[in-house]
Design a binder for these strands. Structure first.
Lengths: 183, 183
DNA sequence: GTTTTAAGTTGCAACTAGAAACTTATATTT
DNA sequence: AAATATAAGTTTCTAGTTGCAACTTAAAAC
């Protein structure tokens, strides 16, 4: 028995608020070849993102992940294996104590940071309601980073109403035309 | 029997590449109160992100989601219910045909766009290897949006080596000191 | 008033997660 | 060297989740 409408009061006002952004239902066959399913293939399972976050926070070992996250050992072994298979973590037995295995982020794994931060910032804003410690700061001036945002090529921050979906083929180059592959 | 090291050749070079960013293992107890687990509570289940993406692409009805995504009907019903419960989608029977239920993104749901794009861009870069159609463009000049990036308060794009973890308490205000709550 | 459509439910098989005990390889202590 | 301890897993078994196909229900269309 699910509660389906706890928020309908305020939500009602928002229903028309969100413009269509130019619906593009036509080629939803193409949805399958989008990068999102591919990303979810690697990161979409339970625990994967939390293991990733722990990696970003400097954890490198099985027992560290296990005791910090409280994940079952068999599941942790499975997820670490998958993350290694996907090239997100690198597995390396330590030279000075070969019982110890070090799991480190690869470049590919490290590049998930924007996605992780965007998700975390959303959670802070809409769920927990407050920023969580520790936070990321710019090494240069030790000031907190900005919110992750969508920006135009010239750096303007784009809100949802500033966006449209468009087919790659329909996009006209701006300024100098690009080189083209002829055959 | 898992394959654990298909990428160790190139990965090896990267192991030391990724600096510690100032490990902060000390207060990993605080990991639990981070926004990420909260976000995953809403969006961490299988299909949730794909339903969200379909919503961004202009789908609004049960049968549309079902036939487009190929998801089982019971699972779809369950996920739509959860997304509504979490205030990410709003559920509205249509006035002119009350069989039809419209699912629309709320503001809260729409604000997941940066997270979804960051994930998609990562998938395009590291998994599929190419941008997928349709893409998001700036409504003003119809040019594609930038990559989602981490930026300093002054707009500089920050790479991983430019970042540190820090406790909120340790951050000094820049410029004019802020007002403080006294009691 | 019979049929069709939209949005679900139900029942059941297959898969996945979780808790706890067990294994294996290496390192440390006596 | 033998006994103990530690790190990183496996195994086993139970509980929960996913997925498919058939069924239901309410509203519309014919």
């Amino acid at each position: 028995m699910r509660l389906r409408s706890f928020a309908l009061g305020w939500v009602q006002n928002i229903i028309d608020w969100f413009g269509e952004m130019g619906d593009l239902k036509e080629n939803l066959a193409e949805l399958a070849e989008c990068g999102l399913p591919a990303a979810l293939e690697s990161m979409g399972e339970r625990w994967s993102f939390l293991i990733l976050r722990a990696s970003f926070n400097g954890l490198h070992h099985f027992e560290e992940f296990q005791s910090t996250l409280g994940i079952a050992r068999n599941i942790l072994a499975n997820r670490l294996g998958r993350l290694v298979d996907h090239g997100i973590l690198a597995r390396q037995p330590l030279a000075d104590d070969r019982r110890k295995i070090e799991y480190r982020l690869t470049e590919k794994g490290a590049e998930l940071l924007p996605a992780m931060l965007a998700l975390r910032q959303w959670g802070e804003r809409w769920e927990t309601g407050c920023a969580s410690t520790p936070i990321l700061v710019d090494a240069r001036d030790e000031q907190p980073i900005d919110r992750i945002a969508i920006q135009a090529h010239d750096g303007r921050v784009l809100g949802l109403k500033d966006l449209r979906w468009k087919h790659v083929a329909d996009i006209k180059p701006l300024g100098a035309p690009r080189l083209q592959v002829v055959a």
